[in-house]
Design a protein around this nucleic acid. Sequence first.
DNA 1: GCCCAGGGCTATG
DNA 2: CATAGCCATGGG
Length: 282
Amino acid sequence: MNRIHVEDFDLCSTLESGQIFRYVRLSEGYLVNHRRRAFWVCQKGQNLFFDGVEERCILHLFGLDRDYRAIMRSLGDDRTLKTAMRLHWGLRILRQDPWECLISFLCSSTKPIRHIRVIIERLCRAFGEEITFGNHQVYAFPGEGTISGSDRLRAIGLGFRARYIHEVNQIIEGGYLERVAAKPYGEAKALLMGLPGVGDKVADCVLLFSMECPEAFPIDTWIRRGMERSYFRGERTSAKKIHTFARKHFGPYAGYAQQLLYHYWREKGRNFDTKHDPSRRR
DNA sequence: GCCCAGGGCTATG
DNA sequence: CATAGCCATGGG
């Protein structure tokens, strides 16, 4: 077992804020499956314990090489954001594999996170290679070009998303996503949105979580509701206006604000739902 | 049966 | 530009 000292890091909110889907909470820590590797990781205060993976991979994936305090400072002292920061301080933006991230969020449209996780697990079982971690038998995420067959994908439960994934799998070839990642935000986003099934929201997720674009600001139903309520007097607002506002209000690291607010509002909603009537949301 | 879920595409005003 | 209906599926 290995150990590193970490500051301004919260493993729990980082993993459980909906950026990544392939992790399992154990009695102690988490089993994470990413980049063809399954590894164990556990945080106790400022100690991060891990096994089955190199230290540099941990630092890279969890973005521990980034100046978190400087990023938080750059977001401003917004009242709503301050609350989210206080509750989830240390939530980092992950640095995922672009292919895994893209396919994962192609699975995500109009699905609850619990179900997305199930679907992706089935996808890996059907197309991925078996790998091991200790006595755990798990499946790696299938590589580029290995996820084909709309019917097979539909049988997994992907529904209308099956065709998108099948087609994207045919289009993407070695090095393509890395070339996209090397381009500036606007250009990279346009390229991603040229892929079938990839619209504004999925593109922003891929850019933020796997392509070093901290200005990307994914707008899903939770963010839309929250932003409208907190910044637009509860009025219906287009994604375009929310994007413009977010970029101006939060700055070049707006994506961090998005992830903090998303996690904050979703957690709050969950608690509200269990205590009250779920049908009364909005 | 109803509603909603980390949406995207297409056809219309 | 904005909106409506549609696309499949599962869980509360």
